[in-house]
């Protein structure tokens, strides 16, 4: 990342083309309102939704859908480009520091935008603490490892503590109240609500200014709403759609999506699944493949915790140690 990097992903919706621009190409306002009601706010979202799904929107006929798709194609080019251009696009990626320098080093700078990061581990390993720390670090200026952006926090377990945000903000020398202002918080009530929220999120994100979406945890409501083997298939499908939507949003709006996951016990586990103590993350392969970076957290000695990369498209395997403290996630100090 050079200093002269493209800054307009930050200010306003510079690179985000909103659906309102389709009006100029002949789509009437009413249809655009319908699109927005369905949570589609930007033209790139239109491009990523299939015609089938667009037709399912209340009030849009197949003919309309064709027209909309055609118009969107004119505005956004989604064809082949040379990898060099892709490289330029990747320059907009911002790495958000996790608060612990060795953790950042392991991730080659921190958790990156335009990608989904999943963190899983047993209870008390620091997943929620990490989420809180990221809420604050995402607001730091870029030269301090932050992303200078707002945070959307979807809480499914009821573990969000604004008081912690105050403490963590103190550690970084930030104004606690302003930090809280920059976090958009919602408590998801059930898995369907969780999915609807993502649509709402589209509206927020299209205004620009968001850099981090945290879902803590992604799976807990799904686990509750769908029970038994019979509904497992449906659960996985819904989960998949949910994740795919989140992932697309991350790429379109240059945000980092940070997911927390739970673990399930596997009494009969053999060495097949190489997780440390016979526990494997919930969500199966759907969740495993949806997130680009996966990190396992486990408890070390005393108040140390160990993070290990399980899957990453760019970082080599590695481990690092961190401690949980009043300032969130911190380096092990000697």
């Amino acid at each position: 990342m050079s200093r002269e990097e493209d800054m307009d992903g930050m200010i306003g919706a510079g690179s985000i083309i909103l659906v309102d621009q389709l009006q100029d190409l002949g789509i009437n306002a009413g249809d655009i309102t319908k699109l927005k009601a369905a949570g589609i706010y930007s033209v790139s979202t239109v491009m990523s939704t299939t015609k089938r799904n667009l037709s399912k929107i209340k009030g849009l006929s197949e003919v309309k859908v064709e027209k909309i798709k055609e118009a969107s194609n004119k505005l956004v080019n989604c064809g082949f480009v040379s990898a060099l251009i892709q490289c330029d696009i990747r320059k907009r990626v911002i790495k958000i520091s996790t608060g612990c320098k060795s953790f950042d080093q392991m991730l080659n700078g921190g958790i990156s935008t335009m990608s989904t990061t999943e963190v899983f581990g047993e209870f008390r390993t620091g997943k929620t603490q990490l989420s809180h720390t990221l809420c604050v670090t995402a607001q730091l200026p870029k030269d301090q490892g932050g992303a200078e952006g707002k945070v959307a926090y979807i809480d499914t377990e009821g573990t969000f503590r604004p008081e912690r945000i105050h403490e963590i903000a103190e550690r970084f020398g930030l104004d606690g109240n302003q930090c809280l202002e920059n976090i958009s918080y919602v408590r998801a009530l059930n898995s369907e609500h969780q999915h609807e929220l993502v649509e709402q999120l589209g509206m927020h994100l299209s205004q620009g200014g968001y850099r981090l979406i945290i879902v803590d945890s992604i799976i807990s409501l799904f686990r509750v709403d769908y029970s038994g083997r019979g509904e497992l298939g449906e659960r996985q499908q819904k989960l998949n759609q949910h994740l795919s939507k989140l992932g697309r949003m991350a790429e379109e709006f240059n945000c980092a999506v940070f997911l927390t996951n739970q673990v399930q016990s596997d009494p009969g586990a053999s060495a097949l699944f190489a997780s440390v103590d016979g526990r494997k993350p919930v969500g199966g392969h759907i969740l495993a493949h949806a997130s680009q970076t996966r990190i396992l957290l486990r408890k070390g000695r005393g108040d140390e915790r160990i993070a290990k990369i399980q899957d990453s498209p760019e970082c080599p395997e590695g481990e690092c140690t961190y401690v949980l403290g009043s300032g969130g996630i911190m380096d092990v100090s000697e």
Binding site: Q139, G173, D175, Q178, C179, Q207, G208, G209
Partner: peptide, 14 residues
């Protein structure tokens, strides 16, 4: 109303 991002930095002349 979605407020735009305002940096929470504490500066000497905020």
């Amino acid at each position: 109303i979605i407020k735009p991002f305002k940096s929470p930095l504490l500066t000497i002349n905020s």
